[in-house]
Computed example of a mutant assay.
Amino acid sequence: MNDLLELAIEAHGGMDRWNKIKSINAELSIGGAIWYVKGNPDVLQEITISADTRQEKVVMKFPRQDKLTVFQPGLIAVKENGAKDFQYFSDPKSIFAGHKLDTPWKNEHIAYFSGEALWTYLTIPFLYTEPGFQTEEIEPWEENGEIWRRLKVIFPENVVSHCREQLSYFGSDGLLRRHDYTVDILGGATGANYAYDYRQTCGLMIPRLRKVYAFEGEAMERKTITDPLLVSITFHSINCEE
Rank of each mutant, 00 (worst) to 15 (best):
N2I: 05
D3V: 13
A8P: 01
E10K: 14
D16N: 13
N19T: 02
A26K: 00
A33C: 11
W35I: 11
E46R: 13
K57I: 10
V59D: 15
P63V: 12
K67V: 04
T69D: 01
E80R: 05
Y88H: 08
D91M: 05
P92I: 02
I95H: 09
A97H: 11
A97I: 11
H99R: 04
K100V: 09
T103P: 00
T103V: 04
P104S: 09
H109P: 05
H109M: 07
Y112S: 08
Y112K: 11
F113K: 14
Y121L: 05
L122W: 04
T129V: 05
E137Y: 12
E143Q: 03
E146D: 02
W148N: 08
P156T: 07
E165Q: 14
Y169A: 11
S172L: 08
L175R: 02
L175D: 03
L176S: 04
L176P: 06
D184M: 10
G187N: 04
G187H: 03
G187W: 01
G188C: 03
A192L: 09
A195W: 15
Q200M: 06
R208Q: 14
L209T: 15
L209W: 04
R210H: 07
A214Y: 06
E218K: 13
E218N: 10
M220A: 10
R222H: 07
K223G: 03
I225T: 08
L229F: 07
I233V: 05
I233G: 00
F235D: 12
H236D: 14
H236C: 06
S237D: 15
